[in-house]
């Protein structure tokens, strides 16, 4: 894990390095997260709309899968109730995973306010991460009413505590992989300020290939093997398949290992990209 400290140190750690020991104060980042939470909470209408539209989508997906299953009973041995559980949990997860703290990179580069952040004694990437965590916090609160309303419309399987624990761990890893995918996408703004088109394409591709909408085992043949090998699978598919039991306890360790491998590679890549991007800002003058 040599690259991770480098990732933090390169931006914002130089002043805290004493005798080779990295001392990092967490107080600012806790505060960033709290402020992001408060900021998100000020947009009340948006919050209400979000819960409403999610519940609507839960209902639509239930109808869709029920209709599809009427044509083709239990494809890939995934019974209808598991499929509806899968689709509903995926939607609840999306409430949390759609948060993108790193879009601040793009916004701040466009406004030029990244210079102001670099004049503060903080690690700027870690600031983005904590801002995302704060937003996630608010969205996590939203999961509760969304879940309650959804339960009025659909039945969701609740697995054993061990499976729930494994799901939570896998989800946390997926969250971090998602952070770095977003980080890399938004970092394109260091080189070209117009990133909207690229982001939209990646968003569509990842929605489809992450297993958020369709379980990845439904993809046929080579395509099926390809999508499982892509990093997007680590975000949605792995935790969801653990939840519905398609990945049995004997497969958990290797599933986590693949997620961790993606996480470490993306963290390292993000470190390099940030270093190059920040250097570019510093040379060009913000």
């Amino acid at each position: 894990m040599h690259l991770w400290p480098a990732f933090l140190r390169l931006d914002g750690m130089d002043g805290s390095m004493k005798a080779g020991v990295m001392r990092m104060r967490f107080a600012p980042y806790v505060e960033f997260a709290k402020k992001a939470f408060a900021r998100e909470a000020t947009y009340r209408m948006e919050v209400a709309t979000e819960v409403g539209s999610l519940v609507l989508r839960v209902y639509l997906l239930r109808s869709l899968w029920t209709a599809l299953y009427a044509q083709n009973a239990a494809p890939m041995n995934l019974p209808l109730h598991s499929m509806i559980t899968y689709a509903t949990v995926a939607l609840l997860m999306s409430l949390i995973l759609e948060v993108d703290g790193t879009r601040l990179i793009r916004e701040k580069l466009r406004e030029g306010s990244i210079a102001t952040d670099l004049m503060k004694p903080i690690s700027v990437p870690f600031y983005f991460f904590s801002d995302g965590i704060g937003q996630t916090g608010l969205h996590a609160v939203l999961v509760i009413p969304s879940l309650l309303f959804s339960l009025l419309l659909v039945h969701i399987d609740v697995p054993s505590p061990a499976v729930l624990g494994a799901f939570a761990l896998s989800f946390a890893l997926g969250y971090c992989v998602n952070f770095f995918i977003n980080f890399l996408m938004n970092s394109i703004a260091f080189w070209t300020l117009e990133t909207f088109a690229i982001q939209l394409i990646v968003r569509w591709v990842s929605d489809l290939l992450s297993g958020q909408i369709i379980p990845l085992m439904f993809f046929p043949g080579v395509l099926g093997r390809l999508v499982v090998a892509l990093p997007f699978a680590a975000v949605y598919s792995t935790p969801l398949l653990i939840y519905v039991g398609v990945i049995p306890p004997s497969g958990w360790a290797s599933a986590f290992a693949v997620q961790i491998a993606w996480l470490v590679s993306f963290a390292a890549l993000s470190s390099l990209v940030w270093r190059a991007g920040a250097r570019r800002v510093v040379i060009q003058g913000g």
Partner: peptide
């Protein structure tokens, strides 16, 4: 030493708010 320097300084931009 960007962050160490940051502790010693304060900055006000008329055209940009922090």
């Amino acid at each position: 030493a960007r962050t160490e320097n940051a502790r010693n300084i304060g900055v006000v931009f008329g055209q940009r708010s922090q």
